[in-house]
Structure formats: C-alpha cells, structure tokens
C-alpha cells in the first residue's frame, strides 16, 4: 500500500510517498519512503501548487493517483489541499514522523520557516503537550534568513560562520525588525561577522528553547524542520537546551510529511 503525506508549509510544500513494507517484528521498518519532493511555489495559489507538486512526485515515482490509498495533509496551508482525505495538525504529524525515525524520542523541536514549536510525545508518536509561538517569527528560520541577508551571507555560510565564534553577544531585540537594526549596529561597531552570526543563532535558539521548556525537556530530543541544515543553529540549540545530543533526521524538512503519510497508512490498517 502507498500513502502520501503533504506538508503545506508557509515557505515550501513537501510531499512524501510512503510504501508499506510489512516487515514483521520491526515496527519502525514497516514503512519506507518511496519518493520525497520539495517545492518552493512560485505562485500564491496554494491549491494549484499542491496539485502540481503532488502530480510531479507521482510522475517521478511512476505512479498514478489511483495507486495511492490515501493522502493526508498538514502544515499551515493544510486546508488548501482539497484532494487530501484528512488534515492533521503540525504537532500530530511532526511527533509521529519524529518517533518513526527515532523511536526513543520523547521531545520534538520543530523549527520551520515561520514558526517553531516544542512537542512532547509518547512512544506511539502521539503528542502529549505542545507549545508554539503564535506571534513572532523571531524563533524561526525566516529570522535567521533575514539576519543572514543583513550580513550579506548565504544561509549555509551564516551557519558555518557562527561555528567559528566563541563569543557570546546577547541580542535583546524580540522581533526581526528590531533585531536587524541591532545587527546593523554590531556591523557598524566592526564586530566580526562570525560573532554576529553566533549572536543571532543563539537568540533564535534561546526563543525556541523557551518554548520547549514550557512542555519540558525529556530525552531523547529530536530537531526537525529546515533549520536542521544550519549547523550553527544546531550547536546553539544544544547549548541552550543543555542536552548532549540532538537527534537529527537525514531528511529533516520531510518529517511532518512522513508523519502524515504514516497516519494515513495506520488509519487504513
């Protein structure tokens, strides 16, 4: 059986096709990702964008719509996926996906483009507690992106630059607009880019960590979402949370889409 999970994020659309492998005695290996695809939609019409990326991923996998038993959607735009059989919240999808990749995980930190959230989960991947920040993107990827622009660095260089600094510069600004002016002040004070990058990522990590502390940190902890690709942020978050290890999935931006596809499959079993 093949199921699909679509994560309609605020910046990107992620689609995963999951195949039921039926491996007896190895629950976490019962399913495998058949195909995954990410798209940065060029248009504002999310309905059309979802249709297009779904058809693309099916074509790439050599499948037709009728080959897929069920489609579930998640993410900020989940209601726009008209062809989905059901829509689940980012918390439910993220927790299920994280526990699929790491069965020992009990705390999931999800940092995407516009939002970050902390999720406590049980061993089945069902959320028991969650907290997000509804108001501000200062604890999310777009904040880091805006700050990297201010420093004229690519996102990857921004993360790597922060790893070269051992300075702690507190950033007080609570929003991207004020923080950007704080970064400009640091640039004018001839502060090295590496130190500014670390200050920014420490600030994002500190906001994310405050959310996660609301639900409580219980090992193991997984970080999912696009910010996993930012090595500087991962280091800052580890330090802020006081944990030795963060479980980092290989396909971090697809974890919620995988969780969705799993929920679709489990509903049909």
């Amino acid at each position: 059986m093949i199921t699909a999970g679509i994560d309609m994020g605020s910046r990107t659309i992620k689609v995963v096709l999951l195949e039921d492998l039926k491996v007896e005695g190895a629950p976490q290996l019962n399913y495998a990702v058949r195909k995954a695809q990410i798209m940065f939609p060029g248009e504002l019409d999310q309905d059309q964008a979802a249709e297009r990326v779904y058809d693309d991923v099916l074509a790439a996998a050599g499948l037709k719509r009728e080959d897929v038993a069920a489609v579930y959607a998640t993410g900020a735009g989940r209601k726009q996926v008209k062809f989905a059989a059901d829509a689940v919240t980012e918390m439910t999808a993220g927790a299920r996906g994280a526990v699929f990749f790491f069965p020992s995980v009990r705390t999931v930190v999800d940092v995407g483009a516009e939002e970050g959230r902390g999720i406590k989960t049980d061993e089945a991947g069902k959320p028991t507690d969650f907290a997000g920040n509804e108001k501000c993107a200062a604890g999310a990827g777009s904040f880091a992106e805006a700050m990297s622009r201010a420093l004229q660095l690519s996102l990857q260089d921004f993360g790597e630059a922060s790893l070269k600094s051992d300075k702690t510069i507190p950033m007080n600004a609570q929003c991207t607009v004020f923080a950007e002016s704080e970064v400009v002040s640091l640039i004018h004070a001839s502060t090295p880019k590496e130190d500014i990058a670390k200050a920014v990522l420490d600030a994002v990590a500190s906001r994310v960590c405050a959310m996660v502390r609301r639900v409580g940190i219980e090992n193991d902890v997984a970080l999912i979402g696009g910010m996993v690709h930012n090595a500087g942020f991962v280091a800052s978050l580890k330090a802020a949370m006081g944990v030795d290890e963060l479980k980092l999935p290989e396909m971090p931006e697809y974890v919620s889409a995988v969780g969705c596809a799993l929920l679709a499959a489990e509903t049909r079993h």
């Binding site: 507690d129 997000g132 929003c175």
Partner: peptide, 16 residues
C-alpha cells in the same frame, strides 16, 4: 494532551 496557546514577547510569556 496539554495544548499551550500563546506567545512570548519582550513584555513576558503569555500562554493559556
């Protein structure tokens, strides 16, 4: 499940 709705900003932490 304990659902925390709200935010943290410069003036404090506001969750229900």
């Amino acid at each position: 499940m304990i659902a925390n709705y709200g935010y943290k900003d410069g003036s404090g932490e506001y969750y229900i």
